[in-house]
């Protein structure tokens, strides 16, 4: 059952610059994780994606949230009740 999700994560991990991926459901439960992404952060990622969507609840699409530090960035998006967090190094 998890094979398609695992396959997508492997695909993402092979993208240049990607160091980790975490998937979480709407309640923050970690569905899958690979690389540097911490499973424990799945709840926060889910909350951030939901809070960002609340900024404009009438919008048809959910926003992409980009959290940048001086070393890396985390990209977050909620789609079909699944929040995906992608850790990337700054190129």
């Amino acid at each position: 059952m998890e094979k398609p999700l695992d396959r997508h994560l492997e695909e993402l991990m092979s993208t240049p610059g990607v160091t980790g991926v975490v998937c979480a459901d709407t309640k923050g439960l970690c569905l899958a994780a690979k690389g540097v992404g911490e499973r424990a952060s799945s709840g926060l990622f889910s909350s951030i994606a939901q809070q960002a969507a609340q900024l404009h609840p009438d919008s048809k699409t959910s926003p992409v949230v980009c959290l940048e530090t001086d070393q890396s960035m985390i990209l977050l998006k909620n789609h079909n009740s699944v929040t995906t967090a992608i850790h990337k190094t700054l190129s």
Binding site: S59, C66, L67, T69
Partner: peptide
Amino acid sequence: FRRLSVIW
């Protein structure tokens, strides 16, 4: 922390 962007 450097920057947070919320992008539509």
